[in-house]
Simulated scan of single mutants.
Amino acid sequence: MERGSTLFLKLTVILMGIPVLALCIFFVPELAELAAKLLPKFSFINYLVSIIFWASAIPYYFALYQAFKLLRYIDKNEAFSEISVVALRKIKHCAISISALHVLVLPLFYLFAEADDAPGVIFVGCVVPFASIVIAVFAAVLQRLLKEAIDIKSENDLTV
């Protein structure tokens, strides 16, 4: 396969990291301050919110790295190999961990919706966990299909 055939996808994977970095730098501190205003009894809430959102960025960037590696495997004609299955498994685990971390912050979205009288905020808070679960399910399906394709390929290689 041509080396540049996945160039657009690689560029897209790289560009997907920029908005999350901007959110972590600019939006997370403001969200932490808002959480401190909503819950003045809990002085540690701003640190907790910051840590959870920044901690969810770690598996996000790790999943992007795994996706980039997967695209390199495709370029090297190693797409149907065990290392691709491992990369998909890691992407699945990253998506599950992102979803779990964002579920921990859902009560904060509820408190914001109560304070601002805007029930749609709760749905905004559910976007990331549900999107992460969809990615995890998609990665799991691809992992299983790839594993079965590798098994079929190895059986065919043995019969010939």
Rank of each mutant, 00 (worst) to 15 (best):
Y110S: 10
M16E: 02
F53Y: 07
E82H: 08
M16I: 08
L48G: 12
K92Q: 05
V137I: 05
H102S: 01
P40G: 06
E82S: 10
S154N: 15
E2K: 15
Q66S: 03
A131N: 07
S81A: 05
L7E: 13
P129L: 03
L88P: 00
V85T: 09
F27K: 12
G120V: 02
A118E: 13
L9G: 11
Y61Q: 09
A87G: 09
F109V: 04
F26C: 09
F8G: 11
L88R: 00
K37R: 12
I14E: 10
L158K: 13
L108I: 10
F109R: 06
Y65M: 03
A22F: 08
H93P: 02
V49M: 02
L21T: 12
L70G: 04
L9Q: 11
L11E: 07
H93I: 09
A22Q: 07
K10C: 07
E148Y: 15
K147D: 08
F62N: 08
S56A: 14
E114G: 13
P129W: 03
P129D: 01
K37Q: 12
F42W: 14
V121E: 09
K10I: 04
I135W: 03
A55W: 07
Q143G: 03
E33K: 14
Q143S: 03
R72Q: 12
F26L: 13
E82G: 06
I51D: 11
S50L: 08
L111E: 15
F138M: 10
L38W: 04
L7C: 10
N46T: 11
E33G: 13
V160H: 12
A95G: 06
S132E: 04
V103T: 08
F112R: 11
K153D: 14
S84P: 04
A113K: 00
P29S: 07
I135V: 07
R72T: 11
Q66R: 00
I91K: 00
R3M: 13
I83W: 08
S81H: 06
Y47Q: 13
I152K: 11
G120D: 08
K41A: 14
I14M: 11
K10D: 02
L142F: 08
F53A: 07
A139C: 02
V20C: 11
L34A: 15
V13Y: 03
